[in-house]
Design a protein around this nucleic acid. Structure first.
Length: 517
RNA sequence: GCGGGUGUAGCUCAGUGGUAGAGUGUCACCUUGCCAAGGUGAAUGUCGAGGGUUCGAAUCCCUUCACCCGCUCCA
């Protein structure tokens, strides 16, 4: 960890994840997927309020990234176009990206040493004598092989050694009974190795009626490859010129070994990704600009406190595609379940030309697919700066950040979403359910609803209605009272302070527009 | 994947072998009228699931699922 940037040094509020999960369920933010059947590990559904919150987050991202003008480090407008690609792609995509191959292998865990080995790289050495110990070692590791031989000769009595027929076999071929008396390479006791297990993180499916090798397909484990494979299409069909970006919001799937921490590590999740294509010699300045702009964006939508940090990766934790280059950094949030540590919201990586080159090579056209830079009269594979954010993680961070315990108020808690992110922008209430107040309130409600998400409630006491809106995170509550009915005004209650303004009815639409847009 | 913990009403929980409960919330009506007020009434349970023991299981046993915590993993 070489660089940490925090906005303010204030300590994190003591929030309990269980309480946040309970509120999410109680108020309809997030439910367990297929809960009536006992749920399913790693999958979550959004309820009415959660769907609105997540949609607000995605809309804000799309709006700020693709639609609104953004000024880049060179003072020019940043050019970004959108795509929306399929979840299932030609399987060759995942060979080119490196997802098939490196992560498809059977692995063996050692319960004692906590080491993990490629099962097809392990071999065992031992004797055929009944019940004798076997010694596992990594085949191409001479040191381990020597250690295994030494351990074997030390373990077996000399006469047994003379008579015993020694075996040397791949670990993959031994039985469960033999495995139970096998010593792991780093273990002190026998029988600590698990059976070989596939750790393929990609979900598999079959495309077409026939289920065989030829129909095998994968659910995409990241949205990025849809962008890379469409790079040439976008160049040919639009008038984009490097530097430019392609943005996409979409679902991705990873068969995580251990889904954990509410929606933080789900097996089905949504990404908001930009692949920004640049000339290789401008990587540093674009990388820094994207990193800083993305950090300030998260702050702007409501993660402004000390719980948000920007963390530059150390060299040794860089991904295979980012070893050389401008760098990689994470925007991280201090979730209640990671505190005092942080969990990743977005990664900003300089992926160099790894992906475009890989696809050019695998599709067989190679250098012919280089980008032609008319201005410089130069051909090259553009480098890529990738800001890749998690929509579900972002939503979860907004929920955690907004959750504000307040024992002094009836609800005991309120959600202080920024108005732009709030699922409901305002509640409109008649103070009493008579004397013509409901009619006035309903007219105002219908007027405001033409542009915003508004809730109308005439039931029960006004305090109850305020309390419900506090838990939904609604920033404003507009109440028609008797004074207002006669003077053409209403009171507007501010969620965070509980203070009230009196505003003329005909001014309220504009008043609200200014604050929630 | 390993170890530990927890599953009973929307939520918080009580109930240790003998009729499934409380508070709170939700809904309706009355009343009141600016912060979950009061009154009356109502609805709501696969006691996580499956199996076993037993005359009888929310309760004991086995298996399994889900969630939480610590490891592991996170290309």
């Amino acid at each position: 960890m070489s660089e940490v940037t925090a906005s303010t040094p204030s300590p994190a509020a003591p929030k309990k994840m269980d309480d946040i999960v309970a509120l999410c369920r109680r108020r309809g933010f997030i439910f367990q997927s297929s809960e009536i059947y006992g749920g399913i590990n790693g999958f979550w559904d959004y309820g009415p309020l959660g769907t609105a919150l997540k949609r607000n987050l995605k809309n804000a991202w799309w709006n700020d990234v693709v639609e609104r003008e953004l000024i880049g480090p060179d003072g020019n407008s940043v050019d970004i176009v959108g795509v929306d690609c399929t979840i299932i792609m030609n399987p060759k995509t995942w060979v080119a990206s490196g997802h098939v191959g490196g992560f498809n292998d059977p692995m063996v865990d050692c319960r004692e040493s906590k080491q993990r080995y490629r099962a097809d790289h392990l071999a065992v050495l031992g004797s055929t004598a009944a019940g004798s110990r076997l010694y596992a070692f990594v085949e191409n590791d001479d040191e381990q092989r020597a250690a295994a031989v030494k351990a074997l000769t030390k373990y077996e009595k000399r006469d047994a050694l003379d008579q015993a027929v020694h075996i040397l076999r791949p670990f993959m071929t031994i039985s469960a009974e033999e495995r139970a008396r096998t010593m792991g390479p780093h273990a002190k006791e026998a029988g600590t190795l698990t059976e070989p297990r596939q750790f393929n993180l990609m979900f598999e499916t079959n495309c077409g009626a026939v289920k065989d090798e030829s129909s095998l397909a994968y659910l995409r484990p990241e949205t990025a490859q849809g962008i890379f494979t469409n790079f040439w299409n976008v160049c040919d069909s639009t008038r984009v010129k490097v530097p430019f970006g392609i943005a996409q919001i979409g679902k991705a799937f990873r068969n995580e070994v251990t889904p954990r921490n509410f929606t933080f590590r789900s097996r089905e999740f949504e990404q908001m990704e930009i692949e920004f294509f640049i000339r290789p010699d401008t990587a540093n300045e674009w990388y820094k600009w994207w990193r800083d702009w993305r950090f300030s964006w998260w702050q702007k939508i409501g993660l402004a406190g000390a719980n948000l940090i920007l963390r530059e990766h150390d060299r040794d934790e860089l991904a295979h595609y980012a070893k050389e280059g401008a760098g990689t950094s994470d925007i991280e949030y201090r979730f209640p379940f990671t505190a005092p540590g942080f969990g990743e919201l977005e990664g900003i990586a300089h992926r160099a030309d790894f992906d475009l080159k890989a696809h050019a090579t695998h599709c067989g056209k190679g250098d012919k697919m280089r980008y032609f830079d008319q201005e410089k009269n130069d051909r090259y594979f553009p480098h890529v700066i990738e800001p890749s954010a998690g929509a579900d993680r972002g939503t979860l961070a907004l929920l955690c950040e907004a959750y504000t315990p307040d024992p002094t108020r009836a609800s005991g808690v309120y959600m202080n979403f920024t108005p732009r992110m709030a699922p409901v922008k305002a509640g409109v209430f008649p103070l009493v359910n008579k004397d013509g107040l409901p009619e006035i309130a309903e007219r105002l409600y219908r007027d405001l609803r033409r542009k915003h998400s508004i809730e109308f409630d005439e039931k029960q006491s006004i305090g109850k209605r305020y309390a419900r809106m506090d838990e939904a995170g609604t920033p404003y509550c507009i109440t028609i009272d008797h004074d207002g009915a006669s003077s053409g005004t209403a009171t507007i209650r501010h969620r965070d302070t509980q203070a009230q303004d009196r505003v003329a009815l005909d001014q309220i639409p504009m008043w609200l527009d200014e604050r929630v847009s």
